Simulated assay, not measured.
Amino acid sequence: MPIFEYQCDDCGNEFEELVFDRDECPPCPKCASAKTSKLMSAVRSKVGGASPDSGSDSAPAPAASSSGCAGCSGGNCSSCH
C-alpha cells in the first residue's frame, strides 16, 4: 500500500499518509488545511542479500580504481595494478 509524503502549503508541516488514490492530497493533520502538495520521496529498494544497514558481515563493494585502466571499473582485473 502506498505511503506518500506531503507538505502543507499553509503551515509547512511535512507528513506521511497512506493514500489509495494517487492523485488525492489529504488535508494537513496539524492545521486541517486542504492546501497540501505531494513531495518527491527518496526510494529504497532491496534486490536480495543483506541490506547495507542490516549489520551483516558481508564485505563492502570494491572501490573504483583510480589507476586509469579502461578495461574494468573496479580495479580487480589482472591488468590493473
Rank of each mutant, 00 (worst) to 15 (best):
D57S: 08
A42N: 14
S54W: 13
E16A: 12
S56E: 04
N76S: 11
C8S: 01
G75P: 00
P2D: 01
S41P: 11
E14L: 15
S79D: 14
A63Y: 08
K38H: 15
R22G: 07
I3C: 01
A59E: 14
V19E: 04
T36L: 03
S37Q: 15
K38Q: 15
G49P: 03
P27C: 03
G75D: 07
G68N: 00
S51W: 09
A59Y: 05
A42M: 14
S45F: 11
S67P: 01
E16K: 14
C69A: 05
C28T: 01
C77E: 09
G48E: 07
G68L: 01
G55T: 10
Q7A: 08
A61L: 06
A34Q: 10
A64K: 07
E16D: 13
C72N: 00
C11V: 08
C69V: 00
G48H: 00
D9Q: 12
S54G: 11
S41A: 13
A32S: 11
C28S: 00
G48D: 04
S78A: 12
K30M: 09
G74H: 08
D9N: 09
S67E: 06
F15G: 02
A34H: 07
G68H: 09
S45D: 15
C11G: 11
S45L: 12
E24N: 14
G55C: 05
K38A: 13
G48A: 00
P27R: 05
M1T: 11
E14R: 15
E17G: 01
Y6N: 00
H81Y: 08
F15H: 03
